[in-house]
Design a protein around this nucleic acid. Structure first.
Lengths: 166, 166
DNA sequence: GCCCTAGAGTTGACGCGTCAACTCTCTCGA
DNA sequence: TCGAGAGAGTTGACGCGTCAACTCTAGGGC
């Protein structure tokens, strides 16, 4: 690939149009998913990610660090998120250390219930808004392009990342 | 297209893979843009959007409501954003009403400078990370798919939305 | 002239997300 | 045995974004 020294040129209208439409499509799609989750299950995408991850864990319980690893989220993000979810009764510590530290974290009954329905709901939305709108040819292109991008920016992220929604 | 009643089926591994890779690509791409802006121009994408919009306005000045309209952002979001940007010296009220209300808002000298360099910088990034990685065929597919999605979710948003980054 | 309401703009509370600084605990080596 | 580190987890400050409630202002009808 020839590094084109293109940085200082401004975009052609056509290029701009492509970029703009594409970005718009993404935003709308993301918004739709978020709203669906909120409307039908009363949770945010962040909450969904946590619920699903715990749901799939053996014993439906993990350590904070594992959760962080599995979601590829910063520990502090996980910690803040768990605090909010604990307040909402979706999640509870299964063991605690000193200073109110959570060592194990698991789903509450409510959390399990919400997780289960959200998973179905979300799969439906992925179909409705994404998969069903793709022709096989489009699917192939989307896929190869996505791989290119991932490869170029962060080749190893496929191995780990496990953020189940967005 | 046959509306398949597909909501309750869970996703096939292949479908999941497509969805997952695609989402990952998006996240990585968005992150890259945000970082580029932050690293090279010291601003966030939200700040960029505001700077560009004001930059393009006649007299480089608008009313808050126009800004909100043009960005398709909520008024309150605009207001919060302007407060932060005023604190950072990128933007200043050109007329104020009672109670410190901004009626007109414009770029400061610093704001103009940052806007100009950010616009070039960003165009370069759009090329580098998005346009250059597309074959013409991929571009055509991305485009038609994006239009489908926009059309399906919010057909009229093309007319207005003007959020110049993301 | 006076009130009344519609619209413009702001504020506060809250959720999400990042970064940097902190605390706690456990292990390993002198 | 003690103490230095490393790793686990938390906290606080801050930026972004939404929603609902508030204030101010200008214009219209009487």
């Amino acid at each position: 690939m020839i590094p084109a020294m293109a940085e200082t040129r401004t975009l052609e209208p056509e290029e701009w149009e492509l970029w703009h439409t594409w970005m718009l499509a993404q935003r709308l799609l993301a918004r739709e998913f978020e709203r669906g989750l909120q409307r039908d299950c009363g949770i945010s995408k962040a909450e969904f990610s946590v619920l699903v991850t715990l749901w799939k864990a053996p014993g439906r319980e993990m350590r904070v660090g594992e959760l962080s690893e599995s979601l590829a989220w910063e520990k502090s993000r996980v910690s803040h998120q768990l605090t909010r979810m604990e307040n909402r009764g979706l999640v509870e510590p299964t063991q605690s250390g000193a200073g109110g530290r959570r060592t194990g974290i698991g789903l509450t009954a409510k959390g399990r219930e919400v997780a289960q329905s959200a998973i179905l709901e979300h799969a439906g939305n992925i179909r409705r808004y994404f998969l069903d709108s793709l022709t096989p040819e489009q699917a192939a292109v989307m896929r190869s392009w996505s791989e290119q991008v991932v490869d170029r920016i962060e080749p190893r992220s496929g191995e780990v990342a496990n953020d189940h929604v967005f």
